[in-house]
Design a protein around this nucleic acid. Structure first.
Length: 1093
RNA sequence: GGGCCAGUAGCUCAGUUGGUUAGAGCGUCCGCCUGAUAAGCGGGAGGUCAGAGGUUCAACUCCUCUUUGGCCCA
């Protein structure tokens, strides 16, 4: 107990923390916490599953620390938290990693390698760095149950996912549609958006303006042609419509005897200058529904959307007025185009197929022509037929295959969707109930995304993922089923075997006759797997194999009170969790109707989303503000940083570095500063306490004096820590840990260490009497007791080590309750004392001003001064009196006497300023003039106002009646002494040095040299000494006057011995010191051993 | 191309519902302290709050545009 720890911590935080970690593992802190909170209310936390096929970086430390801190805080609030780890194991990133490993690339090569072996590789790959993740997480103190994690590729997990998909199907929300996807014709493979993102190259394409003559158009439009622009002439054979913006005003332009319709601002780009004129205008919405003459006549191709309309003008606000003509040629190769075709019933036919080659002859261009090679001949044909108005070259950025650099083609492919739009309103409404931190993510980013919700494209044409459990009748594509469980599958297909693994390719081989009555045909599974975001979004249920098992447990652990992930999860996990939960609990009425499932009770899950609050973490950039990436090699390896600084300093540094959601920079120097400045100060404050608790034999069990009997400074620091505790609760509850930490840091460094302890040191060695000493110990103990608990969620290692030393308990701080001033059982119960806190502020300001004056007049603090005057403007409006702290400021500034100035002493130059918030509303536009008038008020008027009188001031035509509260009194200076003011507090120092003061100053100088010599001789603070001095006459006089006092301070029980000539004797060696004013002293000291009784 | 976020001292960041001297730490210069001592503290200097326009008696704060950076989606 009371062992000093700061040295050990500061020199090797890594070793220090590892010892704490070892203790946690010995005592199984996770298990202990669970037992301690066994009957407590649950606080539900969901761990967002990381993928362990890459190394964890420092940014993962940020996310995990945020999660851990909030959970530790809640545990200290008395809550029970399950902390189940999870692993995300499916998906394209895993496949890409394995492709790299095997040096293969693309679907054909994977198929050649074999699906079974490939998926086995994926399964192995996802846990490549599992151990590294676990080690790191444990080392940074992230408490999580790694023994029983949920794993998305587990058989049970997949079965739960199947069940959920079957629920979507049962509600008619699963359907087969088409999705426009990027495709590489050469590799024969679709690409993910992630892959597209890394393959943009600049290429030259023809830029063409095409005319679309309207058929049977009314009025001024008769005989006119629309003009559209494109850089992909190869898409023109598939033209199915022209899209206009409903709100644009299009110009009707006469040129060369013909009339065209397009935006006036774009006409010059087509027709040049001067040769055209505007003859009318038409609004986009009026063009909708008109038809035009097709560009090409040809047969064949692949129909991707049957429709009743051909070559028609459609209206949509995706059209922009920046490029082109304000009119867009529509072909089924664009996502917007295809969406509108489906919406408006346009017939969509592809001219180019799977290998990006022409499927049918068009305008003499041969079947099999690669899509980009068709650009020129098609353009030539259009030109000959007068449909091409202009052609030029256009350089732009275009997506290419990242493997082979072939330009990509986009077209619609079959895909399975979840009809999330069916319950969009419920998702939007549910989102409003989520407490987002920061709030703008919920209203803005996530809210916008939900408002614009489109159906979830669920399927992926890939290999390693949860197989889509849809089986289709090979004879009738309308006859399909979504399987809800392995048992159901076995019912259709027979026994699945002991070690059934639902992954591809095993599951692909399962087929069976259609169970649909009256139909024939074999059911085969569709080839797709599902989006791995569905996997992770299903985790609230699938992690417990719901509803096959754990129905009660899931009902209790749903929804989450809290989740926390990075900003990049908005459209990822945040969405998939929300969508699945909203559907299941609010849309799937038939599931809950009977209260039973398969004949057994199914506890109702609380209707709503999957989480009640969400803390969004920002991105972590390197110290230059650049995103960390493997490519740039600026990744910070967490292990190295931890070895250097320890986990606590990093945890504090990352969490305090700014509002959680902002991207911020990781700066090694910043972490080092936190370690020294904040954590070091906390440890040193404890050390100070421990040092004197030991030397003075203070007993933790001794009764502590009642608060009323302690000094104002004691009650002040208790009040401060109690209000920090109250603020911290607010900050944590609103998910703003950085705010909690800012308050805590100011408290630890400024208030506790630099003010309370500094000003109270003497009391601890009994220099101010027994009662004062007892009060000081009691107070500092209570404050440390509280501060450590406040900091425990953030810096679990240091606080636990100090806690056990401080309290002498072997019970971890993480089993304690968070400080609560409202709880009578808490050590800081009802400690908040507003008046006492308010009264300290002017004291701190006065002390700062006093130091500034001393600095200016070059009189060191060691030199006592006779008097200081303090004037506090509006002192009577303070809720407490600063005069309670007179002793503190007298000692701090080393002055003999404080004079509290009241009223209107002549030496104060004062000025009134308007109280803007009060007067602004009343005065309005007169405010400026009124302000000037107030500034010009004379001294007597200002003090009359202060005294409660009313004063009329006229400005322009108005007369304003001012009262005391309408002005703010400011002090400008104090005449006749060395003074300083900050406007509210003014101090003046009497700097005249009398012989007495000089003598005492010299005595303090001598004492300083004695103390320095003590320290440099390696003495302990409680060692007694013999002291012999010699020196000038002034020195001798100072010792004669103050020797007894000096002797007491430097622990020389026999007093100071004076010799005229310093000569070495026995253990005494003289050292010569320079003193101010070219005075000199020689001092010799030696330790004396006190006889013990 | 769309949505969201950010730009405040050399650096890292605070800044309440708009209110008139914009704060802290680090760094730098100067000084102090010594019964927490391989520490600690204070005082200076340093800012046209990214730029422009607008609303207002009053804008770092609200609105618009521009610009730079970031994230997500196309």
């Amino acid at each position: 107990m009371f062992e000093p720890r700061s040295r050990a911590y500061l020199t090797d935080p890594n070793a220090f923390e590892k010892a704490v970690l070892a203790a946690w593992e010995r005592s199984d802190i996770l298990q202990q916490t669970a037992e301690a909170r066994h009957d407590a209310d649950p606080f539900v936390f969901y761990e967002g599953p990381p993928t362990a096929n890459g190394r964890p970086g420092i940014h993962h430390v940020l996310a995990r620390t945020l999660k851990d801190s909030v959970c530790r805080y809640q545990t200290m609030r008395g809550k029970r938290i399950e902390r189940k780890a999870g692993w995300d194991t499916h998906g394209l990133p895993v496949e890409l990693e394995v492709e790299k490993q095997l040096a293969i690339s693309g679907k054909p090569e994977i198929e050649k390698y074999g699906l079974g072996p490939f998926n086995q590789k994926c399964r192995d790959s996802v846990f490549t760095y599992k151990e590294e993740w676990e080690t790191l997480s444990k080392r940074i103190g992230y408490l999580l149950d790694y023994e029983k994690p949920y794993v998305t590729f587990d058989k049970d997990y997949i079965e739960s996912v199947w069940f959920l998909l079957a629920r979507f199907a049962a509600n008619d929300l699963l359907y087969l549609g088409s999705k426009v996807l990027p495709w590489c014709g050469r590799c024969g493979t679709g690409l993910s958006s992630h892959e597209v993102g890394q393959g943009y190259l600049d290429i030259d394409d023809p830029s063409v303006w095409i005319s679309f003559p309207l058929i049977a158009a009314p009025g001024a439009l008769a005989g006119a042609a629309l003009v559209a622009w494109t850089t992909t002439p190869w898409t023109l054979p598939s033209n199915m419509g022209v899209c206009v913006h409903p709100d644009f005003e299009y110009a009707i332009i006469a040129h060369d005897g013909k009339r065209y319709i397009l935006l006036e601002s774009k006409a010059a780009a087509v027709f040049g200058d001067g040769s055209w004129e505007v003859v009318g205008s038409v609004k986009g919405s009026e063009l909708g529904g008109l038809c035009y003459t097709p560009l090409f006549t040809w047969q064949g191709g692949r129909v991707v959307h049957e429709g009743t309309h051909h070559h028609m003008v459609v209206v949509d606000d995706f059209v922009s007025d920046e490029e082109g003509t304000g009119m867009v040629h529509m072909a089924p190769y664009g996502a917007d185009d295809f969406r509108i075709a489906q919406r408006d019933g346009l017939r969509a036919v592809l001219a180019f197929g799977d290998e990006a080659r022409l499927l049918a002859e068009v305008a003499g261009v041969a079947v099999g022509t690669f899509f980009r090679d068709a650009n020129k001949p098609l353009a030539r044909d259009l030109k000959e037929r007068g449909r091409l108005l202009k052609i030029s070259q256009y350089r732009h950025s275009y997506p290419h295959c990242w493997r082979c650099e072939t330009p990509l083609i986009y077209y619609p492919s079959p895909a399975w969707f979840l009809r999330t739009t069916a319950f969009k309103d419920k998702m939007v409404a549910g989102n409003k109930k989520i407490r987002w931190a920061p709030a703008e993510i919920g209203a803005g980013r996530f809210g916008e995304w939900l408002e614009n919700n489109i159906d979830w494209a669920l399927s992926r044409d890939r290999f390693w993922g949860t197989p889509l459990p849809v089986w289709v009748n090979q004879e009738d594509p309308e006859d399909w089923i979504c399987v809800e469980s392995f048992a159901q599958l076995a019912l259709y297909a027979g026994d699945l075997g002991e070690n059934f693994d639902p992954h591809r390719p095993v599951v692909d081989e399962i087929c069976f006759p259609t169970p649909t009555p009256g139909k024939t045909g074999i059911m085969r599974r569709v080839p797709q797997v599902i989006d791995c975001w569905f996997d992770s979004g299903a985790m609230p249920l699938a992690q417990h194999h719901w509803p096959f098992e754990n129905r009660e447990r899931v009902a209790e652990q749903f929804p989450a009170n809290f989740i926390c992930e990075g900003l990049d999860q908005t459209r990822g996990w945040f969405y998939s969790l929300h969508a699945i939960a909203t559907f299941l609990t609010q849309y799937d009425a038939s599931l809950w109707e009977s209260g039973k499932l398969w004949g057994e009770n199914l506890p109702r899950l609380k209707p709503g989303g999957a989480y009640a609050s969400c803390l969004v973490g920002g991105l972590l950039l390197d110290k230059n503000g650049v995103k960390m990436s493997k490519r740039l090699g600026n990744i910070v390896r967490p292990a190295e940083a931890i070895e250097e600084h320890g986990a606590d300093a990093i945890r504090w540094g990352l969490l305090a570095g700014g509002a959680a959601h902002l991207s911020r920079r990781y700066d090694d120097k910043g972490i080092a500063e936190v370690r020294r400045r904040v954590l070091g100060t906390l440890a040193a404050s404890y050390d100070f306490f421990a040092l004197y608790a030991r030397t003075e034999d203070w007993d933790v069990r001794a009764p502590r004096p009642p608060r009323q009997q302690r000094e104002p400074l004691d009650r002040w620091i208790l009040s401060q820590v109690a209000s920090v505790a109250a603020d911290n609760v607010v900050a944590w509850e609103s998910l703003q840990p950085a705010n909690a930490m800012r308050a805590l840091e100011t408290f630890i460094v400024d208030e506790l260490s630099n003010w309370y302890i500094r000003r109270s040191r003497r009391r601890f060695w009994g220099a101010e009497g027994v009662a004062s000493q007892a009060a000081a110990f009691a107070t500092l103990y209570e404050v440390l007791h509280t501060t450590l608990r406040l900091a425990a969620p953030i810096i679990p290692f240091l606080t636990d080590a100090l806690w056990q030393e401080l309290t002498g308990s072997t019970e971890s701080i993480h089993l304690q309750l968070f400080p609560d001033a409202n709880n009578p059982a808490d050590l800081i119960a009802v400690a908040i004392d507003e008046p006492l806190s308010a009264a300290m502020a002017p004291i701190l300001r006065a002390s700062s001003l006093g130091r500034a004056v001393r600095e200016r007049v070059q009189i060191r603090v060691r030199q006592p001064l006779s008097k200081m005057v303090i004037h506090i403007a509006n002192e009577d409006q303070l809720s407490g009196s600063p005069r309670a702290y007179e002793a503190a400021i007298r000692e701090e500034l080393n002055v003999k006497e404080i004079e509290w100035v009241e009223g209107t002493p002549d030496f104060l130059q004062v000025k009134a300023k308007p109280n803007f918030p009060r007067l602004g509303k009343r005065a309005g536009s007169d405010m400026k003039a009124l302000g000037a008038a107030i500034g010009a008020l004379d001294r007597a008027t200002v003090f009359a106002l202060q005294g409660g009188a009313s004063v009329a001031v006229s400005v322009g035509d108005h007369v304003y009646t001012l009262e005391g509260e309408d002005i703010i009194l400011q002090t400008e200076s104090a005449a006749g002494m060395e003074a300083a003011t900050d406007g509210l507090v003014t101090i003046g120092l009497v700097t005249e040095l009398t012989p007495e003061l000089l003598c005492e100053g010299l005595a303090r100088e001598i004492m300083n040299r004695l103390q320095t010599q003590r320290k440099e001789s390696g003495l302990e603070v409680q060692d007694r000494i013999e002291a012999v001095l010699s020196g000038d006459a002034a020195v001798q006089a100072a010792i004669a006057e103050h020797g007894a006092w000096i002797a007491e301070e430097v622990l020389a029980p026999h007093g100071l011995r004076w010799v005229d000539t310093p000569r070495a004797e026995n253990n005494l060696e003289f050292r010569s010191w320079e003193l101010p004013n070219e005075q000199r002293a020689s001092i010799a000291i030696s330790k004396i051993v006190l006889e013990t009784a």
